[in-house]
Design a binder for these strands. Structure first.
Lengths: 329, 329
DNA sequence: TCCTGCGATGTAATCGATTACACGACGTCG
DNA sequence: CGACGTCGTGTAATCGATTACATCGCAGGA
């Protein structure tokens, strides 16, 4: 394996110094035209590639960003990560991914080992002590820990929840149920509060069921819901998955959506449009979220300045499909 | 920012040489007990972390593996990547991800820039010229280019397709349709061939429609299918997404699955079990695939030997749910 | 007593690229 | 004609950890 093509080899082949080769590659303008051509030819001939470890060491940067998410298998994160990778890739940065639920020591090391220049954090439940010890720019995306105050970006979850409530109210529903997300999750909390606030404004009879974003919890909520004496006619689930679980369980129990109950989801995952019935849901602009976060972080890194502090909220909107309909009777 | 805690600082604090600190951290056994304790205390006190760029440079390795996939947002890849990350993480390796459809030069650089020690490739459509120039161990997972001969791991797609056909035949279906994957894709080809071979064995009347794994192509196939004079009573789609698209479109056109047509998918994505109807499909053991590939690569890396050549096929199985039923009339 | 061997530690070369600084050649301007 | 600036290039220090080799002290055997 002849990986040992060093910059010195190229320099020798071109009859120049290593400094000149390095300059030719990173800042061609300062090198004489003829020399530049000779060096380029030598690079071509030798098949030289920079050794990034050496460059990273010298420049004290890793040209890499780290994305931390609680569940990499999650569809929702998939597209965000893909977008981040795209933006980073075209800026010459590589993207590494890691599960934020790993052992605390390992997580903490990620912010110290010099393998990444910055972190995009998709998990609001990480201990603030860990975040505090990181010495890297961190941007929180989609969710965050209320105790910490890092730069962040997310959709306006409360406003989005109100959109869902308004839609149901407009359809004539008076008794509505929210299947919440897990306790302690900021997103879940904000959506729940948005739901309750919106319901109050519209004078709806609102109640909340426990949930945790999963399909299983949606199914569980459906079984509880069906047993109620005076069932709400509309449901707002804290996630699409949860909504799917609810709908599937209703179906199993012989009830139909939207004929027997209207359902609104949250996220607008890819399947939402192809589920039966196609799901009315809050659309989260995942590509925008991913892109904005990546751009913000990368801009700070390349301009070598700290991340602008502050949390930014962007609008989500409601996509009306077939899982909701006007209240009957 | 006091990131400049070098090994020398620890050495000074402990009153030893940098060599001793390094040894204490990487090979404690060779260091005297008392010295070891002093060094550990100094490490603790200073908050020292190794600089991986320096270590990587010296040791000529990156402690990182690269996962290349054509579409990181794809649910199917999500879980595989998550599993790879898990295995790699506990071996102390980091995982970087990149989109294999990026510009060729960028892709090629990934195998040269020293940022990764090995590659797990989830894309069978990459030009073999590029693979050939990489100087890293590569393992192809799930699909591969027939022209290249790299170590690989996948399920036995032909056998899996035959399972699907057998299931439909057992249910009494005599006329079956396969919605194929994209032209030129090895997976698509193998599944199609398995379908045709299985149909021949069982004496079924088999036909094939074009597709490309997407929901849109499934929907398209549904519209073509419904227009047929003598419609096949069962469909085997080359992917779950495609099956969902087919089912959703049938639904829109007023037909029901499985009452009017039985559908078998391929992959067993998370939603398959919660779709309406729950999808009968081929289960791909994604966790096993990811784990095996990661373990095989990591073992080769840590033992510093080349990857064992050869392609390995593992079994998939059929999961029978509600999208298939016995042929009526 | 002297030599050998071993365990613990230090010294310094090394990995490969970047870059501050120095230098020489050449042109311009007073 | 000399001073000075500019441009292109080379020399060598530097990033921070690892590790081959040297060194030292001491125990045990001849």
């Amino acid at each position: 394996m002849n990986k040992n093509i060093r910059i010195a080899d190229v320099a020798r082949a071109a009859g120049v110094s290593t400094a000149t080769v390095s300059r030719t590659l990173s800042n061609p303008a300062v090198v004489g035209v003829e020399t530049r051509a000779r060096v380029m030819a030598a690079v071509e001939a030798t098949g030289y590639r920079v050794n990034t470890a050496a460059r990273d060491l010298r420049q004290r940067r890793a040209r890499s960003i780290l994305v931390l998410a609680p569940n990499l298998a999650n569809t929702f994160f998939g597209r965000i990560i893909a977008t981040i990778q795209e933006v980073a890739g075209s800026a010459g940065l590589s993207v590494q991914v890691s599960d934020s639920r790993a052992e605390a020591g390992r997580i903490e090391a990620l912010g110290h080992d010099g393998r990444a220049d910055g972190i995009i954090l998709l998990d609001g439940s990480l201990a603030p002590e860990i975040l505090a010890r990181w010495r890297l720019p961190v941007i929180e995306l989609c969710e965050w820990n209320t105790r910490a105050t890092l730069p962040g970006l997310a959709i306006d979850n409360a406003a989005a929840a109100r959109l869902a409530v308004d839609h149901l109210a407009d359809l004539g529903h008076r008794k509505v149920l929210h299947i919440a997300g897990p306790e302690g999750n900021v997103l879940a909390l904000t959506r729940r509060e948005g739901f309750l606030a919106g319901s109050a404004t519209r004078g709806l009879d609102a109640s909340v069921a426990a949930g945790d974003f999963t399909m299983a919890s949606g199914a569980r909520a459906a079984r509880d819901w069906i047993a109620l004496p005076d069932r709400p006619s509309a449901v707002f689930a804290a996630s699409d998955e949860c909504a799917f679980g609810f709908i599937a369980e209703c179906h199993r129990m012989g009830l139909s959506v939207p004929d027997d109950v209207s359902v609104v989801g949250f996220d607008d995952v890819d399947f939402a449009d192809h589920y039966i019935p196609a799901l009315t849901t809050i659309h989260q602009p995942r590509v925008r979220l991913g892109r904005f976060a990546a751009q913000r972080l990368i801009a700070a890194l390349t301009e070598n300045r700290p991340l602008a502090p502050g949390r930014e909220l962007i609008d989500a909107h409601l996509v009306v499909r077939n899982s909701t309909r006007a209240y009957q009777r």
